[in-house]
Write a protein that binds this DNA or RNA. Structure first.
Lengths: 331, 331
DNA sequence: ATGAAAGCGCTAACAA
DNA sequence: TTGTTAGCGCTTTCAT
């Protein structure tokens, strides 16, 4: 265990004070060019690396962002984290990644970990949306910016970056109408989660314009359920002429049923989904037409917001990432 | 910004010394039951949270593991990270996650970040496998255990946890032979990467036993390429009666071609792959028969190894995670 | 059983 | 331009 080089070592070697070394290393204007050079050279030579703990202890901040998500193993959060990681790296920040498993207790513990690690900021997709903000409060009180993303509290006084959930559903509905679909199976997620409610409401509203279209609304809590729902619907006497899938998870179930029943897409039936980036839609042939709600883009946006916050722009606001239609050949 | 409670605050309140408080809080045997009680209660009441930076500065260690992977957005690494996160949480450790983007320079920078953050250990899948261990050396010199996983250096004196790559290929070959497949399209990854070479060699060797089987070997650097290869092979006069896909990425391309050509699985042709966990194989109908090489399991194994190392078991060794055949209905 | 004091490595106010 | 000094919050040795 080769002892770590410290400022003291350098100062001793050069016969100057520790503070001069410290200042020289960080380009303080007071230091003479000559000294600066000298210090820099020796520091490089000795392989000096600052002790981040001492710095953090002293300055009371760190170069780490905390990210709390329900689960890492999820396309959406995955893309989000990836984007934030890319940006953070550029400004010399690292990521502390925590999974809440959708459990408010674990989430509370994760928040505590963020505090303990004195993270410079927190990006969080909440486990259970509620109006109770107390568990997040302590962070902001300590001056730690907290940016909520995707699943956010139902409260105004906080920073949020969200997907245009309603918008995505409306875009899908519009696309279906343009194709003149008349008998649509629409599969949404678990009825209790807020994103389901938002998308369902917006979708149905947008569909109202087309009174004569027959709409079958279903809820699937898993890919498996969506498989079953789709199978049943297409085994019925009158087959739907289009399926709308609210998410990738649902889409995968539906597509499995399509394969099983050997349904020809888009001739027998059209498919449209709301998907995170292009991964799942591109898995199939023909490729799926989908409304993109990009975790990756949202990550970039969240990073922007937290950067702004840290550089002093401390107002609260909600940023919305627009959705867009990506044409495949499935509709 | 409500000021953080420190040991000093507690000691002042109780009119005892800081050291007594410190000791009481961590259950030092010297402290009287009475004092301990008193301190504990007040600490809880005041919402005391130790300053991890001060602790780390003092003790020169942290409660953070560093994980360096080529990319987070990859099933395999994803599962791996997930598993390590779960285990780490149990012992109060967090994860610093870094992406190398397969760039040795970025990797070096990531390693530096791990050192700077005084991580308690590093789990790394290397960007470019070589015999040059110097860039990893400094960590171990500082007493930081480093566990290589999946893509590991070609050197004995280090700790590795690996998948049974050869074994997986052999299992696949055996399964194909059992089904009496005679005309097999085997698609491997990019010829330069080591895992391709290992799997290819093992697969071909295992296939040798069945001289009369016709083997078409192909290499695909992407899902798209595997799609093209499969399409071409099945458009030829004599169709293969089975396809072996070396990875999930390749499998997705192959399956897209299957859908395009409306090939019936397993009647027209059988499919078998080497896959990470069950996600991709379960996307299709029928579900794909695959050899499982689990990133999740590997994560658990890596965590075990690093725990062992930290509790004093400091020998070098290579741990191999066995592969196993998971039967779907595609072969 | 408790306290005093030193010091981990660094920054920054103040002095010179 | 440089040095001195006083901490940041904690652990730990050495006294008591």
């Amino acid at each position: 265990m080769s002892a770590k080089i410290t400022l003291k070592d350098i100062s001793r070697n050069l016969n100057i004070s520790i503070s001069t070394v410290s200042r020289a290393l960080k380009g303080h204007p007071d230091i003479s060019e000559e000294t600066r050079e000298k210090v820099m050279r020796l520091a490089a030579l000795m392989d000096y690396e600052p002790n981040t703990y001492a710095i953090s202890l002293r300055t009371n901040k760190s170069n780490i962002f905390g990210i709390i998500v329900p689960e890492i193993s999820n396309f959406f959060y995955h893309s989000f984290i990836s984007a934030v990681e890319e940006e953070s790296k550029k400004i010399g920040f690292s990521l502390l990644i925590l999974q809440s498993g959708n459990d408010p207790l674990v989430e509370a513990e994760n928040i505590r970990l963020c505090r303990l690690n004195r993270v410079a900021g927190v990006l969080i997709s909440v486990a259970a949306s509620s109006k109770d903000m107390s568990r997040y409060q302590k962070l902001e009180e300590n001056g730690v910016p907290i940016i909520f993303f995707d699943k956010v509290p139902d409260v105004d006084a906080c920073n949020k970056v969200c997907l245009a959930d309603e918008d995505a559903a409306v875009l899908a509905a519009t696309a279906l109408q343009k194709k003149g679909k008349q008998h649509i199976l629409a599969i949404f997620g678990h009825p209790d989660i807020s994103i389901t409610q938002k998308r369902k409401l917006a979708f149905i509203n947008a569909m109202e314009k087309n009174k004569q279209a027959k709409l079958i609304i279903a809820h699937a809590g898993s890919s498996r359920e969506s498989f079953e729902i789709t199978k049943t619907a297409f085994l019925a006497s009158q087959q739907p002429d289009a399926v709308f899938c609210m998410s990738d998870e649902i889409l995968t179930g539906t597509m499995k049923a399509m394969q099983l029943l050997k349904i020809n897409i888009p001739n027998d039936t059209g498919i449209i989904s709301i998907s995170n980036d292009d991964f799942i839609p591109h898995l199939y042939e023909p490729e799926i037409t989908y409304i993109e709600t990009s975790g990756y883009q949202l990550g970039k946006l969240a990073f922007e917001r937290i950067s702004d916050y840290m550089s002093g722009k401390k107002f609260y606001r909600e940023l919305i990432l627009p959705s867009k239609l990506v044409e495949g050949n499935s509709l």
